Simulated scan of single mutants.
Amino acid sequence: MPHVEPARLLELALGNSGSNGDLGALRHIASCDRCRQELSRMTRLVITARSVEEPDLPTAPPERVWQRLTQDLSLAEEPAPPACAEPVRPLAPESTEPRYTRGSTETRVRTVRVALALLSGIVVWWWSRSARRPGRRD
């Protein structure tokens, strides 16, 4: 019997079951170490991704980072300015308190869902790519 498709394994890991193909896939997984291990990996990934909380999400970089990027990009297009005689002063340290200036909880939840979907797609792509390597025995 052929191996279970990565998309099907992902559906099983997400808990989306109920189709007629599940019984055959589950039987194959029970007898195939490779598919069983891959389902286990995907299940651990899903559990980890679902346990992400708001403090785990990346925050926007400070405004000074965007200013520096803009400055560096504009310098690439223009000739270099003359050297500055005035010493460069360090920037004041940013507050360690998280700042939420825009966006609602719904927006953040939607962002997490998109990130999880992207991560799932990468896992499926990687798994299907590794399954096609020449000389690989199943």
Rank of each mutant, 00 (worst) to 15 (best):
M1E: 08
M1L: 14
P2K: 05
V4L: 06
V4K: 11
P6K: 00
A7Y: 07
A7Q: 14
A7H: 12
R8D: 10
R8V: 02
L10W: 12
E11S: 15
E11P: 01
E11M: 15
L12T: 09
L12I: 15
L12S: 11
A13T: 00
L14K: 14
G15S: 10
G15A: 05
N16C: 08
N16T: 03
N20K: 15
D22R: 13
L23D: 04
G24C: 07
A25L: 10
A25M: 14
A25R: 13
A25Y: 12
A25V: 01
L26W: 06
L26Q: 03
R27P: 04
H28R: 04
H28D: 02
H28Q: 02
S31M: 15
S31R: 13
C32E: 10
C32W: 10
R34I: 09
C35D: 15
R36M: 04
Q37L: 12
L39V: 03
L39P: 11
L39E: 01
R41F: 09
R41Q: 11
M42H: 02
T43C: 03
R44Y: 01
R44N: 11
L45C: 06
L45Y: 10
V46L: 03
V46D: 00
V46G: 00
T48Y: 09
A49D: 11
A49R: 12
R50W: 01
S51Q: 15
V52Q: 13
V52C: 04
E54N: 09
P55T: 06
L57I: 06
A60M: 02
P61L: 08
P61H: 11
P62D: 01
V65Q: 11
W66H: 13
Q67T: 01
R68A: 06
R68G: 04
R68W: 10
L69C: 14
T70M: 05
Q71Y: 13
Q71K: 06
D72G: 08
L73I: 03
S74W: 02
L75G: 07
E77I: 14
E77T: 10
A80F: 10
P81M: 02
P81D: 03
P82H: 04
A83M: 11
A83E: 08
C84R: 10
A85F: 12
E86K: 14
E86I: 07
P87H: 11
P87E: 13
R89K: 08
P90S: 02
P90V: 12
A92N: 09
P93M: 08
P93T: 02
E94R: 01
S95R: 01
T96D: 15
E97M: 06
E97T: 13
R99I: 09
T101L: 14
T101R: 14
T101E: 08
G103W: 02
S104W: 03
T105G: 09
E106S: 10
E106F: 12
T107D: 15
T107H: 13
V109T: 14
V109D: 07
R110K: 12
V112F: 00
V112Y: 03
R113E: 13
R113N: 05
V114D: 03
V114G: 12
V114R: 15
A115W: 11
L116F: 07
L116S: 08
A117F: 05
L118H: 04
S120D: 15
G121H: 09
V123M: 07
V123H: 01
V124S: 13
V124C: 10
V124D: 14
W126V: 13
W127Y: 05
S130P: 09
S130I: 09
A131R: 07
A131I: 00
A131K: 07
R132T: 03
R136T: 12
D138E: 05
